[in-house]
Design a protein around this nucleic acid. Sequence first.
DNA 1: TCTGGGGTCCTAGGACCC
DNA 2: TCTGGGGTCCTAGGACCC
Length: 373
Amino acid sequence: MRWYLHVDMDAFFVSVERALDPVLRDKAVIVGGTRARGVVTSASYEARKYGVCSGMPGYQARRLCPNAIFLPTRHDLYREFSDKIFAILHRYSPIVHKLSIDEGLVDLTGTERLWGLPLHSSQEILLRLRRELGLPASGGLSGNPMIAKVVAGLAKPSGLAYVPHGSEEALLSPLPVAAIPGIGPKSENMLLQQGLRTVGSLLRRDDFRQRFLRPYDQARETGAGDHSIGAETTLEVSLSDLSSMERVLGALVEEIGGRLRDEGVRACRITIKIRYDDFKTVTRSHTIGVPTCFDREILAVARWLLRKNLVSGKKVRLLGVNVGGLRASGWQESLFNFSRRHAWENLYRSIDCIRQRYGDHTIAIASSRAKEE
DNA sequence: TCTGGGGTCCTAGGACCC
DNA sequence: TCTGGGGTCCTAGGACCC
């Protein structure tokens, strides 16, 4: 008998802010949407009553709920809390999958001797998250990870849903197809056009059974693939001149380079993303022969891609850089290049140390900061 | 004062190789 | 005188998730 507990934090970013500032309790609180062109990243249930939801533009949220308290998004803080959450989950099982910053899957199979019945330990886990971190969470307990996730969503807020073995199909069948993770607006529409409205109707079709019920499980089980690191920014004011855009790229690349060296990996593929004012978005990528973690090499490719592909005259509202094809630092290259690259590596290591000690903005590549001085 | 930022996975065409 | 075919890499775009 397998048992999976899917843990999903309630209004996570808002809850973290509340844990640190009790004044925010019971109030309509909205995280995000504070900057120009910003969107809501988390809304308290009090704010949701007015129709505010995450992803909504800030100005719209302000119109719907003018009395809400708006807070800037503090990702680093939420990441710290996320680590604490997963430390608690790991106390209950050696097998914990991190599905996102605020969602985890705990494999409780075979933990009965230590922690009692899965239903009991699930209750305890949710209680602990609240008592030790001050964060409300919901849970779904099932023999199937995907179903555990679905019912955790149904149990919100602060609930625990339990699906006994054998009752899965009866429980899922009446739900709308969009309840299945991986079925978004497009797929839902396609299914509706074929008269498939509920999960039950989907389950009666073998082709769909395979196509839609499998990917989620596969994706979650196989895990550690070829991940990527990216940074992007929506500009407060759209840009049309190349040199300003290149400074933005410089700042994005610094962030990515730091993270590559932090993780001890190098990238083979560099991708830039350009979103124009009309929201047309293009990505352009280039694969390099020698994997790199050096800002200057990444930036050179990013600038080249930008110059080559930018439609002149069109204003740009977003720029992004992403690196992939990541591999551990044991890379191959000629002896000739080695000593020079070694010097660069030392230089970047020093830069990272200075940033860590004195803050991100104390040191930067000249071109990325030039205009601010 | 329209529409974030971090990702993952899938598809599909073309190049290239054996 | 038709024009194979299978595998892999590269690239671009899009759906989806939180």
